[in-house]
Simulated assay, not measured.
Amino acid sequence: MTVDNEPRSSLPGESLVFARRLFTHWRRQPVVPIQAVFFPTFLLVTYYLLVGESVMTVTGADSLYGLVPTCAVAGAMFGALAASLSIRFEREGGLLSRMWTLPVHRSSALTGRLLAEAVRTLVASAVITAVGIGLGLRFEGGWFDLLLFLMVPVVVGVIFAAALIAIAVRTTNSSVLMWLAVPAITAAFASSGSPPVELLPGAVQPLVRYQPMATAIGAMRSLAQGDSALWPLVLGCAWTVALAAVILPLAVRGYRAAAESGP
């Protein structure tokens, strides 16, 4: 009787392998980096040049403190949307099933994908923030505030990516992803980062102020300005826990079913 003493890889190590696979894919087919970095950066520069002075005249505040968070959060969602389109092809081509049969932790492929989304969003948010600083943004908070500022889009991007995965593994029609993407991205721009909430009709102010994207962008604005971000961070954490409790189990079950069903 022989005993196989070969050590198994850890879940974090295997997740890194799957994440690197996605990084290689994105480098060779840079649709995701373009959607995640260049497109929101273009929106930031264009929006600031077109309406920056008008917002300063109307509100008395620099629009960059709202535009940079808005474009960082929107970039996280744009990138997640572009990345999710490949899942359908991986399922139909049998790649998900082949990865499922590998001698690795069953969750490593999914956690690796979410890890790749988190790293991509962190890098994209840092680039967008650097461009904002070049345009005149002055970060008034400390280094810890800057870290929290960059982590907010990461959390949004991971939750949004999980929601897209939950849909992508269950459909053969890519346009279905837009049913989630369009309202979510619209919510990012219809938040405190773009139109000042105080200038909106009173009936819609509570909807804009307390929707998930508004709390994320409001927290980033407060962190950049050096103000207290406790309340928007608390609201954002509440939204994160509630959405993760619903979305992550759906993504896990859907991914498992798609992998086990084969092409």
Rank of each mutant, 00 (worst) to 15 (best):
G157R: 00
L44S: 09
L110N: 07
S191E: 05
L164R: 01
L233C: 13
A229P: 15
V104Q: 04
S54E: 15
R91M: 07
G141R: 14
A242G: 10
F18S: 02
S194Q: 08
N5K: 12
L199H: 06
G75W: 00
G236P: 05
V45R: 04
I128C: 08
L164Q: 01
S97H: 15
T172N: 08
L248R: 06
A244H: 11
A130Q: 08
A229D: 14
L250M: 13
T240L: 09
L200H: 03
A76V: 05
L177G: 05
V182T: 07
W26E: 06
A257I: 08
Y48H: 06
R170Q: 02
P33N: 11
L43G: 01
Y255W: 14
F18C: 01
T24L: 03
S174M: 03
V73W: 00
T171H: 06
L148G: 03
R27M: 06
P201Q: 14
S194K: 03
G218A: 14
F18P: 01
A224Q: 06
P30Q: 04
L43E: 12
A74D: 10
C237W: 15
A258N: 02
W26Q: 06
L50H: 13
S222N: 10
L102I: 12
G52M: 03
L11W: 04
V204E: 12
F144P: 13
Y47H: 15
R113E: 03
A229W: 05
A259H: 04
A224M: 11
Q225G: 11
R138K: 14
Q29D: 12
L177I: 07
A61K: 02
H25N: 02
R88W: 15
R170M: 06
L146R: 04
T186I: 08
L67V: 03
A36W: 00
